[in-house]
């Protein structure tokens, strides 16, 4: 005898209960996913520097977002909440201090692709990002790639708004230095 037999309403395959429990219906989620998955993946991949990790963290972020009981008010709030979940997951990943051998890094990370200014930006940005602190990378990406305000970044990262302003100023100065160093090295 199982729960399904004892309490059929709780355990059967009927998805009505589960659907009701999730904060969005399937169709609304599909639309939201279509609009926010790529920016989220870009954030995770560029900040972590690992495409495979970005795949895993993105899936986990969406699953946690759906499982969360918190009902966000609109798409902007949902998206901010999603970035917050992803930021926390990335932080948890960094806390599990482990070294990655060069053999473990996916080949596509090193692959040079055809393209234009975007490829050049990636080539310049990669080495500079690698020299930044994880938190600074997060703040910089959220501010300049995603266009979040200081207040929104504070909500996503859990930092104070004033701290974000100062940290962003320092991180941007450092990043600009690294980018200039990188481009002058490439010019030689």
């Amino acid at each position: 005898m199982t729960w399904q037999q004892v309490l059929p309403r709780f355990g059967d395959g009927d998805t009505a209960m589960a659907d009701a429990a999730l904060p969005m219906d399937n169709e609304a989620f599909a639309g939201f996913y279509e609009r926010s998955a790529r920016p989220l993946w870009a954030y995770l991949a560029r900040v972590s520097g690992n495409a495979a990790l970005a795949d895993d963290l993105m899936q986990e972020s969406f699953v946690r977002f759906l499982c969360s009981a918190q009902m966000a008010r609109g798409e902007v709030d949902c998206r901010r909440y999603l970035f917050r979940v992803a930021t926390n997951l990335m932080r948890d990943h960094w806390r599990q201090a482990k070294t990655t051998s060069i053999e473990d890094v996916a080949e596509e990370v090193f692959a040079v692709k055809d393209g234009s200014a975007q490829v050049e930006a990636l080539t310049m940005l990669g080495p500079a990002m690698a020299q930044m602190r994880p938190r600074d990378k997060q703040i910089l990406w959220l501010a300049h790639a995603e266009g979040y305000s200081h207040k929104e970044i504070a909500e996503i990262t859990g930092l104070g708004s004033a701290s974000v302003r100062l940290l962003l100023f320092r991180a941007r100065r450092r990043m600009a230095e690294l980018l200039r160093e990188g481009s002058s090295r490439r010019a030689l």
Binding site: A42, Q118, V119, M124, L140, A145, L179
Partner: peptide
């Protein structure tokens, strides 16, 4: 410098997903 580099990198990265 930082914002334009990051925005270009974002566009490129979104295509890789």
């Amino acid at each position: 410098l930082v914002a334009s580099t990051m925005q270009q990198a974002r566009i490129a990265a979104m295509g890789e997903a």
